[in-house]
Amino acid sequence: MFNTHYRLERHSIRFVLAVMVVASIGGLVEIAPLFTIDETVEAAPDMRVYTPLELAGRNIYIREGCYACHSQMIRTLRDDVERYGPYSLAVESKYDHPMLWGSKRTGPDLARLGGKYSDEWHVAHLIAPRDLVPESVMPNYGWLMRSELDTQDLGLHLRAMRKVGVPYSDAMIENATADAIGQASPDKDAAEGVAERYGEATTIRSFDGDPRRVTEMDALVAYLQILGRLTDAAHVQSGAGRMEAGE
């Protein structure tokens, strides 16, 4: 073995190839099968895609680096499940390009945040977290309320998402801007199209409390309220588990 190496280390190209082969094996074995083994991601036929407004909110979440303090992944540990709810399934982040599982928790996990608080609570909390939770170290995000949401390019966003595999229809892409405005403006005609394209269960309301404007706050709160609610596969699975255990 050492003699072989003695020869190998005299040829730069061969050495380069050897490094590439040896280093690639781990990734190939661990990553490639994740795309081919069916059990990796559960089936969830009822799952819906993000509306343009929620997607815009998600992009604000990314822009502000909320993931630097919050995870979106409830682990299969008793502590996690008792605090946050049923543990996260792979399918729940199927439409997350990129995923936002996070890597640390300065603040709590947000995977099942949707519906936990009212919109008013979120708006007040994002503007001044310490007014509601005095010991919080979360930054104030007052400017979200002041900035108009840029809805112009949302069609391009949906189109790019479709290219990477999210099933947006042509109608969704065409109406992306109108749908974003409509979801946050319940009184406008545009609101109807949102329910038509994304389902009756879609929440349509002014998330920031000001129906005259569509702000970044609208988008972010719409996103926070949908977290964990694109599918109820996790609840169904944990419910079934309890029944089997005889509860």
Partner: peptide
């Protein structure tokens, strides 16, 4: 995939569990 060649924003080719790995 960038949303266009005139925008900074792009969407990762992978999602969810494959993206995490």
């Amino acid at each position: 995939v960038p949303i266009s060649f005139g925008h900074a924003k792009s969407y990762s080719a992978f999602s969810g569990v494959q993206d995490a790995m």
